[in-house]
Write a protein that binds this DNA or RNA. Structure first.
Length: 276
DNA sequence: GGGTAATGTGGAA
DNA sequence: TCCACCTTACCCA
Protein backbone atom coordinates (compact mmCIF):
# COMPACT_ATOMS: atom_id res chain seq x y z
CA UNK A 1 0.00 0.00 0.00
CA UNK A 2 2.50 2.60 1.00
CA UNK A 3 4.54 5.24 -0.72
CA UNK A 4 6.37 8.00 1.10
CA UNK A 5 3.33 10.22 1.55
CA UNK A 6 1.59 7.53 3.59
CA UNK A 7 4.66 6.90 5.72
CA UNK A 8 4.75 10.57 6.67
CA UNK A 9 1.01 10.54 7.22
CA UNK A 10 1.36 7.64 9.64
CA UNK A 11 4.31 9.23 11.41
CA UNK A 12 2.30 12.36 12.13
CA UNK A 13 -0.77 10.44 13.24
CA UNK A 14 1.14 8.05 15.46
CA UNK A 15 3.07 10.85 17.13
CA UNK A 16 -0.23 12.46 18.04
CA UNK A 17 -1.93 9.24 19.08
CA UNK A 18 0.76 7.25 20.84
CA UNK A 19 1.44 9.46 23.83
CA UNK A 20 2.22 8.41 27.35
CA UNK A 21 3.09 4.91 28.54
CA UNK A 22 2.38 2.29 25.91
CA UNK A 23 1.36 -1.34 25.95
CA UNK A 24 3.08 -3.34 23.24
CA UNK A 25 2.65 -6.90 22.16
CA UNK A 26 2.96 -9.15 19.13
CA UNK A 27 -0.11 -11.37 18.72
CA UNK A 28 1.47 -12.92 15.65
CA UNK A 29 4.58 -13.71 17.68
CA UNK A 30 7.33 -12.68 15.32
CA UNK A 31 8.10 -9.56 17.35
CA UNK A 32 7.14 -10.94 20.75
CA UNK A 33 10.44 -10.65 22.56
CA UNK A 34 11.03 -7.14 21.28
CA UNK A 35 7.49 -6.13 22.19
CA UNK A 36 8.10 -7.30 25.75
CA UNK A 37 11.20 -5.11 25.88
CA UNK A 38 9.26 -2.09 24.73
CA UNK A 39 6.19 -2.66 26.89
CA UNK A 40 5.50 0.19 29.29
CA UNK A 41 7.86 2.56 27.51
CA UNK A 42 7.12 5.80 25.70
CA UNK A 43 7.78 7.09 22.22
CA UNK A 44 9.82 10.26 22.07
CA UNK A 45 9.94 10.92 18.34
CA UNK A 46 8.76 9.34 15.12
CA UNK A 47 10.80 9.86 12.02
CA UNK A 48 9.68 9.24 8.45
CA UNK A 49 12.35 8.99 5.77
CA UNK A 50 11.29 7.87 2.34
CA UNK A 51 9.38 4.64 2.90
CA UNK A 52 11.02 4.00 6.27
CA UNK A 53 9.63 4.69 9.72
CA UNK A 54 11.78 5.05 12.83
CA UNK A 55 10.13 5.06 16.25
CA UNK A 56 12.54 6.49 18.80
CA UNK A 57 11.70 5.17 22.24
CA UNK A 58 12.65 7.22 25.26
CA UNK A 59 15.78 5.73 26.78
CA UNK A 60 15.22 2.81 24.49
CA UNK A 61 15.85 1.43 21.06
CA UNK A 62 14.67 2.48 17.63
CA UNK A 63 11.92 0.43 16.02
CA UNK A 64 12.42 0.38 12.29
CA UNK A 65 9.36 -0.38 10.13
CA UNK A 66 9.18 -0.81 6.38
CA UNK A 67 5.73 -1.77 5.16
CA UNK A 68 6.86 -3.30 1.90
CA UNK A 69 4.12 -3.99 -0.56
CA UNK A 70 1.56 -5.61 1.69
CA UNK A 71 2.12 -3.96 5.03
CA UNK A 72 -0.52 -1.78 6.58
CA UNK A 73 -1.57 -0.07 9.80
CA UNK A 74 -4.98 -0.36 11.39
CA UNK A 75 -6.12 2.29 13.85
CA UNK A 76 -8.68 1.67 16.55
CA UNK A 77 -10.68 3.90 18.84
CA UNK A 78 -12.09 2.43 22.00
CA UNK A 79 -13.64 0.01 22.44
CA UNK A 80 -10.66 -1.69 20.88
CA UNK A 81 -11.33 -5.00 19.15
CA UNK A 82 -9.03 -7.92 19.90
CA UNK A 83 -6.14 -8.01 17.43
CA UNK A 84 -6.27 -10.21 14.36
CA UNK A 85 -3.83 -13.11 14.65
CA UNK A 86 -1.77 -11.54 11.87
CA UNK A 87 -0.90 -8.45 13.90
CA UNK A 88 2.89 -8.23 14.14
CA UNK A 89 2.88 -5.36 16.62
CA UNK A 90 0.08 -3.76 18.60
CA UNK A 91 0.90 -0.44 20.27
CA UNK A 92 -1.79 0.70 22.67
CA UNK A 93 -1.95 4.19 24.19
CA UNK A 94 -4.63 5.37 26.61
CA UNK A 95 -7.09 6.39 23.92
CA UNK A 96 -5.83 4.90 20.71
CA UNK A 97 -4.45 1.64 19.36
CA UNK A 98 -2.28 0.98 16.31
CA UNK A 99 -1.91 -2.46 14.72
CA UNK A 100 0.92 -3.23 12.33
CA UNK A 101 0.22 -6.03 9.85
CA UNK A 102 2.48 -7.78 7.33
CA UNK A 103 5.41 -5.37 7.31
CA UNK A 104 8.40 -6.26 5.17
CA UNK A 105 10.58 -5.19 8.09
CA UNK A 106 9.91 -4.59 11.75
CA UNK A 107 13.03 -4.66 13.88
CA UNK A 108 14.99 -3.03 16.65
CA UNK A 109 17.78 -0.98 15.16
CA UNK A 110 20.87 0.51 16.81
CA UNK A 111 21.38 4.20 16.00
CA UNK A 112 24.44 3.36 13.95
CA UNK A 113 22.41 1.09 11.69
CA UNK A 114 19.68 3.68 11.35
CA UNK A 115 22.31 6.21 10.28
CA UNK A 116 23.79 3.83 7.77
CA UNK A 117 20.39 3.07 6.31
CA UNK A 118 19.48 6.75 6.01
CA UNK A 119 22.86 7.54 4.46
CA UNK A 120 21.93 5.27 1.57
CA UNK A 121 18.73 7.18 0.84
CA UNK A 122 18.36 10.16 -1.46
CA UNK A 123 16.47 13.32 -0.62
CA UNK A 124 12.95 12.88 0.66
CA UNK A 125 10.70 15.57 -0.86
CA UNK A 126 8.67 15.66 2.35
CA UNK A 127 11.63 16.38 4.62
CA UNK A 128 12.99 19.80 5.40
CA UNK A 129 16.52 18.48 4.96
CA UNK A 130 15.89 17.56 1.33
CA UNK A 131 18.59 19.01 -0.91
CA UNK A 132 16.63 20.21 -3.92
CA UNK A 133 19.64 21.36 -5.90
CA UNK A 134 21.47 18.10 -5.35
CA UNK A 135 18.53 15.92 -6.43
CA UNK A 136 17.82 18.00 -9.48
CA UNK A 137 21.46 17.77 -10.44
CA UNK A 138 21.37 14.00 -10.08
CA UNK A 139 18.14 13.67 -12.07
CA UNK A 140 19.54 15.86 -14.82
CA UNK A 141 22.82 13.96 -14.94
CA UNK A 142 21.37 10.48 -15.18
CA UNK A 143 21.53 8.61 -18.44
CA UNK A 144 18.77 6.28 -17.27
CA UNK A 145 15.06 6.69 -17.96
CA UNK A 146 13.59 9.31 -15.65
CA UNK A 147 10.89 6.80 -14.69
CA UNK A 148 13.62 4.52 -13.37
CA UNK A 149 15.57 7.25 -11.61
CA UNK A 150 12.46 8.39 -9.73
CA UNK A 151 12.00 4.91 -8.25
CA UNK A 152 15.64 4.72 -7.18
CA UNK A 153 15.43 5.29 -3.43
CA UNK A 154 19.07 6.34 -3.32
CA UNK A 155 18.22 9.33 -5.52
CA UNK A 156 14.72 10.28 -4.36
CA UNK A 157 13.36 8.61 -1.24
CA UNK A 158 9.66 7.85 -1.02
CA UNK A 159 8.50 7.74 -4.64
CA UNK A 160 6.59 4.61 -5.67
CA UNK A 161 4.68 3.52 -8.72
CA UNK A 162 1.59 5.69 -8.26
CA UNK A 163 3.53 8.86 -7.54
CA UNK A 164 5.86 8.17 -10.45
CA UNK A 165 2.97 7.87 -12.89
CA UNK A 166 1.02 10.85 -11.63
CA UNK A 167 3.89 13.25 -11.08
CA UNK A 168 5.41 12.59 -14.52
CA UNK A 169 2.00 13.14 -16.09
CA UNK A 170 1.46 16.41 -14.26
CA UNK A 171 4.97 17.57 -15.17
CA UNK A 172 4.33 16.38 -18.75
CA UNK A 173 7.41 14.19 -18.93
CA UNK A 174 7.38 10.76 -20.54
CA UNK A 175 8.84 8.10 -18.20
CA UNK A 176 11.18 6.81 -20.91
CA UNK A 177 12.99 10.08 -21.38
CA UNK A 178 16.57 10.07 -20.15
CA UNK A 179 17.28 12.36 -17.24
CA UNK A 180 20.11 13.98 -19.15
CA UNK A 181 17.79 14.78 -22.06
CA UNK A 182 15.61 17.00 -19.88
CA UNK A 183 16.04 20.73 -19.78
CA UNK A 184 16.92 22.26 -16.46
CA UNK A 185 13.54 23.98 -16.18
CA UNK A 186 11.87 20.65 -16.82
CA UNK A 187 13.73 18.97 -13.96
CA UNK A 188 12.89 21.91 -11.73
CA UNK A 189 9.22 21.53 -12.62
CA UNK A 190 9.41 17.82 -11.86
CA UNK A 191 10.83 18.39 -8.39
CA UNK A 192 8.31 21.12 -7.60
CA UNK A 193 5.49 18.83 -8.72
CA UNK A 194 6.84 16.00 -6.60
CA UNK A 195 6.96 18.16 -3.50
CA UNK A 196 3.50 19.59 -4.08
CA UNK A 197 1.78 16.29 -4.81
CA UNK A 198 3.47 14.48 -1.95
CA UNK A 199 2.69 17.21 0.59
CA UNK A 200 -0.98 17.14 -0.25
CA UNK A 201 -1.02 13.34 -0.29
CA UNK A 202 0.70 13.20 3.09
CA UNK A 203 -1.90 15.57 4.45
CA UNK A 204 -4.83 13.55 3.10
CA UNK A 205 -3.28 10.11 3.45
CA UNK A 206 -4.04 9.29 -0.19
CA UNK A 207 -3.01 10.30 -3.67
CA UNK A 208 -5.88 12.20 -5.26
CA UNK A 209 -4.22 14.01 -8.11
CA UNK A 210 -7.09 14.15 -10.59
CA UNK A 211 -9.92 14.96 -8.23
CA UNK A 212 -12.50 16.94 -10.16
CA UNK A 213 -13.63 20.24 -8.62
CA UNK A 214 -16.51 19.63 -6.25
CA UNK A 215 -15.89 15.90 -6.08
CA UNK A 216 -17.27 14.20 -3.02
CA UNK A 217 -14.84 13.73 -0.17
CA UNK A 218 -14.98 9.95 -0.34
CA UNK A 219 -14.15 9.71 -4.04
CA UNK A 220 -12.41 6.38 -4.71
CA UNK A 221 -8.72 6.67 -5.41
CA UNK A 222 -8.98 4.96 -8.77
CA UNK A 223 -11.31 7.71 -9.96
CA UNK A 224 -8.97 10.48 -8.91
CA UNK A 225 -5.83 9.74 -10.87
CA UNK A 226 -4.75 11.06 -14.25
CA UNK A 227 -3.04 7.99 -15.68
CA UNK A 228 -2.17 5.39 -13.02
CA UNK A 229 -4.16 2.28 -13.95
CA UNK A 230 -6.45 4.39 -16.09
CA UNK A 231 -7.67 3.30 -19.52
CA UNK A 232 -7.72 6.92 -20.67
CA UNK A 233 -5.98 10.06 -19.52
CA UNK A 234 -8.33 12.01 -17.26
CA UNK A 235 -6.80 15.21 -18.55
CA UNK A 236 -7.39 14.78 -22.27
CA UNK A 237 -9.05 11.39 -22.90
CA UNK A 238 -6.20 9.88 -24.90
CA UNK A 239 -5.65 6.14 -24.40
CA UNK A 240 -3.06 5.64 -21.68
CA UNK A 241 0.10 3.86 -22.73
CA UNK A 242 1.43 1.05 -20.52
CA UNK A 243 5.09 0.20 -20.56
CA UNK A 244 7.66 -1.35 -18.27
CA UNK A 245 10.21 0.98 -16.76
CA UNK A 246 12.63 -0.29 -14.12
CA UNK A 247 10.76 -3.59 -14.06
CA UNK A 248 7.42 -2.08 -13.10
CA UNK A 249 4.39 -1.01 -15.08
CA UNK A 250 4.50 2.65 -16.01
CA UNK A 251 1.56 4.66 -17.32
CA UNK A 252 1.82 7.63 -19.63
CA UNK A 253 -0.41 9.78 -21.80
CA UNK A 254 1.10 10.07 -25.29
CA UNK A 255 -0.58 13.43 -25.74
CA UNK A 256 0.32 15.07 -22.42
CA UNK A 257 3.71 13.37 -22.18
CA UNK A 258 5.05 13.20 -25.72
CA UNK A 259 8.32 11.51 -26.48
CA UNK A 260 10.58 13.70 -28.59
CA UNK A 261 10.73 12.32 -32.10
CA UNK A 262 13.54 9.86 -32.52
CA UNK A 263 16.37 11.28 -34.59
CA UNK A 264 15.71 14.83 -33.60
CA UNK A 265 18.99 16.65 -33.57
CA UNK A 266 20.49 16.50 -30.13
CA UNK A 267 24.21 16.92 -30.39
CA UNK A 268 24.97 17.68 -26.78
CA UNK A 269 25.66 14.08 -25.92
CA UNK A 270 25.61 10.66 -27.44
CA UNK A 271 22.78 9.23 -25.37
CA UNK A 272 19.98 10.30 -27.68
CA UNK A 273 19.87 7.05 -29.58
CA UNK A 274 20.24 4.73 -26.62
CA UNK A 275 17.95 1.77 -26.89
CA UNK A 276 14.72 1.67 -25.01
C1' DG B 1 -15.94 -18.88 -1.93
C1' DG B 2 -11.98 -18.78 -5.15
C1' DG B 3 -8.65 -16.30 -7.98
C1' DT B 4 -5.84 -12.39 -8.59
C1' DA B 5 -3.32 -8.09 -8.36
C1' DA B 6 -1.11 -4.52 -5.31
C1' DT B 7 1.38 1.89 -3.83
C1' DG B 8 8.15 -2.78 -2.51
C1' DT B 9 12.45 -4.79 -1.91
C1' DG B 10 16.23 -7.97 -1.87
C1' DG B 11 18.26 -12.13 -3.08
C1' DA B 12 18.83 -15.92 -6.26
C1' DA B 13 19.53 -17.39 -11.11
C1' DT C 1 15.15 -10.78 -14.79
C1' DC C 2 12.36 -13.59 -11.76
C1' DC C 3 10.65 -14.97 -7.46
C1' DA C 4 9.46 -14.97 -2.60
C1' DC C 5 7.78 -12.57 1.08
C1' DC C 6 2.65 -12.13 3.15
C1' DT C 7 -1.83 -10.01 3.61
C1' DT C 8 -5.72 -7.39 2.09
C1' DA C 9 -9.15 -5.87 -1.13
C1' DC C 10 -11.45 -6.49 -5.07
C1' DC C 11 -13.51 -9.04 -8.84
C1' DC C 12 -16.27 -12.75 -10.35
C1' DA C 13 -19.15 -16.77 -9.71
Amino acid sequence: MPEGHLIHHHARAHLADLRGPLDTRSPQGRFAEEARQLDGGQIEAIEAYGKHLFYHWRDGPIVHVHLGQQGLFLHHDPPTPPPRPQVRLRIAAAGRVVDLIAPARCELLPTRDRDRLVAGLGSDPLRTDADADDVQGRLAASGAAIGAVLLDQSVVAGVGNVLRAEVLNIARIHPSRRGNSLERACVHRLWATLVGVMEQAAEEGRILTARPPGARADIPEHEARFVYRQPRCRRCGTDVEQLTVAGRTAYACPTCQPLPTRGMPRQRDGSGSASG
